[in-house]
Design a protein around this nucleic acid. Sequence first.
DNA 1: ATAGGCACCTGGTGGC
DNA 2: TGCCACCAGGTGCCTA
Length: 283
Amino acid sequence: MPELPEVETVRRGLTPAMEGAVITHAAVNRPDLRWPFPERMAERLTGAQVTQLRRRSKYILADLDTEETLLIHLGMSGRMTVSGDPLGQFAHDHPAHQKHDHVVFDMDNGARVTFNDPRRFGAMDLLPIATADTHPLLAKLGPEPLGNDFNESYLAARLSGRNTPIKSALLDQRIVAGLGNIYVCEALFRAGITPRRKAGAISEKRVHTLVPIVRHVLTEAIEAGGSSLKDFRQADGELGYFQHSFDVYGREDQPCKTPDCGGTISRITQSGRSSFFCPQCQR
DNA sequence: ATAGGCACCTGGTGGC
DNA sequence: TGCCACCAGGTGCCTA
C-alpha cells in the first residue's frame, strides 16, 4: 500500500494529534510485527512527548523528548488512524478495538492513534535520537526523490552501466528512496519509457526527463491525499483519491490515455511485481 | 558488486 | 457454501 505519498499523507494527518502531545498510554498487543518490538517498548514510550514527526522514505520517525526516536514502517497493509477529539472533550469517544490493531497510543490531548496491519509486514523500532542515518533500515537508503540530492546528474550516474530493467532500478531504495510499484509505473508512463528498458541503456536526455516527472507524480499524489487501493486511509479515515488519476496502474486491457495513441495497457511481471505500461507509447 | 527469486502474512476475488 | 489458485501498495536475505 503505502509508498512515499501515502506515508507523507499519514504523517501529515498524525501531526496535529501527536506533535507536542504526550503518550499517556501505549498498548502493545503482540510481541512483534515483521520483527520483534524493541525491549520494553510500551514502557519506553509511556510518558514521552513527541517533539517532531518526520518522514524518511517510507518511514515515519517520531522524535521523543526521551532522546529516542520511534521508527515506524507501514509495510504493505499498515494503517495509522486517529480517533477522538484532540481538544479532549470527547477523550473516551473511540471506536471499538478492531482485529489487527497491534499498537494503540493514547495521547494527553484526547487523541488515540491506532496502528493496524493485517499482514504484519510493518515494523517499529526505537533508536537513539539523531542516529537515524545509521539505523540499519535507513543507512543504505538513497536520496529523497523530492530533495535536492535527487537530480539529473545523480540519477544518470546511478543508472549508467546497470543491466537491470529501469523498473527494478527505480524500485531499488538505494538509488532513490520512497518510490514503490504504483509510482514507478506511473512515472515511466509519463516519461514514455518501457519498464523493460535496461537502466544503463536509456539516453542521458531521457534520464534527465525522469527526474522532474518523478517529482511531479509524487507531488500530485501527496496533494490528492495518496492513493486508496483496497483499504488505504488517511489518518482521519478519509480516502485518498490519486487512484482516479492513474494512467496505467491497474488498467490492464484498458485503452491508453494518451490522445490518439490507440494502445492498450499491458501487464507484465518483473521480479515478481506487476508492471503496467502502454507498449505503444512507452519505448 | 549485481541480479533474481523467495520469504514473511492475511485477506479479497473469481472460478468451479 | 466450500475450496483453491492467484493477487496485493514492501523489502530483507539468500543464492549464483
